[in-house]
Every structure is written in structure tokens, then in C-alpha cells.
Write a protein that binds this DNA or RNA. Structure first.
Lengths: 190, 190
DNA sequence: ATTTTTATAGAGTGATCAGTCAGTCTTATA
DNA sequence: TATAAGACTGACTGATCACTCTATAAAAAT
């Protein structure tokens, strides 16, 4: 087995349950089934482990999204895909998503390089830019539109986590709220 | 001077800068200008301090909102007041608001009693209930409407933090986005 | 076959930190 | 004024933790 992956998986599980400072490196090593020192063979410091875990998870999410997007489809479809697939991914990968949020409100965020951060928003920025340039979006600042999209996405995900509905109902909520969002940010009359 | 308040203020400042585990109780005491042991005279444990700080801040926010609400005004005005005043408060009390978010994604949240949590959503629940019963809102689950409101509120706040606009422009963004939100969740045609 | 490099182990270490304790100072009350 | 109660102090402690170090085993390179 790949000990590095074991360590990251163990860390994720423990961080979500006990928080960053609530999980000593010794517990991570134990949970991963390796010796204490082995952890420091793969990661120079605990912080490096945390940051790498974050980047790894973000890459997974990004890879997933890219695999679902098709440049040939119209903007609305691609936006819908991003919206729906993001929520679905977050529902399936609960620990990972919670970890991302935890990480975002921690001082560790500052340790992520600017490039790494930029890499993760590039796709969204491209989509939003397209919407603005093609005048499909309302005449609002592009960042504001991005914020509206992101926050509603987070919100609807939170709603689905708090109220466990059958999968079909979940899909309905996602579809309905996307229509609401689309009406809000575009000039299109339905 | 009130040492308990000094301690809470010092803790807030340090927590926001260094995170919960990044700030030892010794530093909090020093920053507050009191002896180490005094901290434990007022708070049995570090965790109690953190939780009390959270509740204190939430009470302040709630008190502020209540002072701005007038039962006589129509629902739309009251909702707008909640929306606008929440964002304004968060902009003025940056540290407090950041702390709330930090706290929300930490294991400490579990230590807040159910009553304390309920107390903080009562006002919002009442407003939302009124909107549903009066059929002003669309026929959507009340929690979903609440989520849509809350998430957009958070989002617009984040947008204003990331882009520093003159106050008049800020007000414009708040007004505009409230109209968008209101159109999204109500049946009213503008 | 021999050397070098890499992976793994786990006991050990120095620093840090939450929380204690024994005692002093301040204030209120009798 | 005497006494009690509460506020306050800061040195101290026991535990914990991130990280190191030495040693060994496995794998790769020569």
C-alpha cells in the first residue's frame, strides 16, 4: 500500500473529526498504520501535510469538474454542469468538502502559493468571462456574479446536508435553484 | 477596567490573527494585561473562553438587529433591514464576523448548547415563517428560502470585503443584490 | 556481489502549553 | 477596625506534541 496516501487519508478523517490542532501527528501515523517517523519522511512538517492534503483534494475536485465539461455545449449548460456537479461532488465527498471549508478559515490558507490558488479559479473565471463578454449576463461586475454563483452553490449544498432528502428530491432542488440563479444573473426571459 | 472584557477582546484579536490553537492562553493574558492565572479565574478552560466569546458576539449581533427592526413595517422592509444591517454590521465588525466563521468550522461549535443556537435563529425563523404563511414567498421549503437568503448575504459580504468600494457604491451593491434576492424568492412582479 | 539510496521504525527530546496552587492584595461588610 | 470573601498574581507542573536521531531493512544501481 501507498503509505503517503494512507497518511493523507488518515489525516483527512481525523482533521474532520477533531480539527487540525486536535489531531496529533502521532495519531495520524497510528491511524495510517505506520510509524511516527515515517510521517516525517513523507512530509517535512505537519503544516506541509495539511497544505498538501488541501492541494490534493482541490486537484481531485478540479479534475472531476474538467471531466464533466464539454467546450462544445452552450454556456448555460456548462454553468449548470459546474453548479450541479460541484454540489454532487461535495455531497459524495463530505469529509473532503468539510476539510476545504475548515482550511479556508484557518491560517494555513496563507501558506498556499498564489499560483496554486489561481489554478483553482481559472476554470470558473473563464466561464464567467464568457458570460460577461457575450452579454448573456446582466451588466454587473464579474466578481459579483461569481460571488452570487458560489455562495448559492455553497448554500444549497448546506441545505441538502441539513435535510436529507431522497436522491430524486435532491436533484429537483438543485435543478430548481439553478433556474432561480440563472434568472437572477442573466437577461434571459423565461 | 473590566478584566473579563479585556480578556475576550484580546482573545478575539489574537484568534483572528493566529487561529485558536495558534494563540496560547499566556499570550491572551499578556495582551489583556492580566496575569496568567486571572484568565482561569474568569474562564474555567480555554474552550469555555472560546465558546463564551462566540455567544457574546452573537448576542451583540442579535441585539443590534433587534434594535433596527420595527414590527409595524411590511415584511419586505424588515427583510431588507435584516439583509442590509447584517452586511453592514459584518463590515464594521470584521474581526467578530471572521471569528464567527472560524468558529463555525471548528469542533468547538459542538459545545454550544442547542438552546443557545436556537435563540440565534429565532428572529430569522419568525420572519421567514411570516413570508411563507402570507404566500409572499414562492412555494418552496422554508429552510431552502432561508438558505438562499443567508448564503447570498454571506456572499455579498465577502464580495464587499474583497473589493473595497466607496461607501456609496457598497450601499448600491447591497440594494441591487437585495432586489435580485427578493425577485428570486417571492412571487412579486416588479 | 557490492554499494548506495530510499523506506520504515520507534524511542527519545526539548519546547510549549493548559491549567494549578499557594499566597497577596482589594473591597465590602459587620 | 477586624474579618471575611473575592479578585488577582505568577511561578510551577505534568502532559503533550512536533520533530529528531539512530538503526535496520528493502530496493535500486553499479
Amino acid at each position: 500500500m501507498d503509505k503517503e496516501k494512507e497518511l493523507l487519508a488518515a489525516a483527512l478523517k481525523l482533521f474532520v473529526e477533531f480539527g487540525f490542532h486536535g489531531t496529533p501527528t502521532s495519531k495520524i501515523a497510528k491511524e495510517a498504520g505506520v510509524a511516527n517517523g515515517t510521517l516525517f519522511h513523507y512530509f517535512k512538517t505537519k503544516e506541509e501535510l495539511i497544505v498538501k492534503l488541501y492541494i490534493r483534494i482541490k486537484e481531485e475536485l478540479n479534475g472531476h469538474m474538467l471531466s464533466k465539461l464539454d467546450d462544445q455545449t452552450p454556456l448555460e449548460i456548462r454553468m449548470k454542469t459546474v453548479y450541479e456537479e460541484s454540489i454532487q461532488w461535495a455531497l459524495v465527498h463530505r469529509d473532503e468538502f468539510y476539510f476545504i471549508q475548515q482550511f479556508h478559515f484557518s491560517p494555513h490558507l496563507a501558506k498556499v502559493s498564489a499560483e496554486d490558488l489561481e489554478k483553482q479559479t481559472r476554470m470558473h473565471a473563464a466561464l464567467l468571462g464568457e458570460g460577461v463578454e457575450s452579454r448573456i449576463f446582466k451588466a454587473l461586475p464579474v466578481n459579483l456574479i461569481g460571488t452570487l454563483l458560489a455562495s448559492q452553490l455553497y448554500g444549497v449544498h448546506q441545505y441538502l446536508v441539513n435535510n436529507d432528502l431522497p436522491v430524486s428530491k435532491q436533484k429537483e432542488v438543485i435543478d430548481e435553484t439553478f433556474v432561480l440563479l440563472w434568472q437572477m444573473i442573466t437577461n434571459i426571459k423565461s
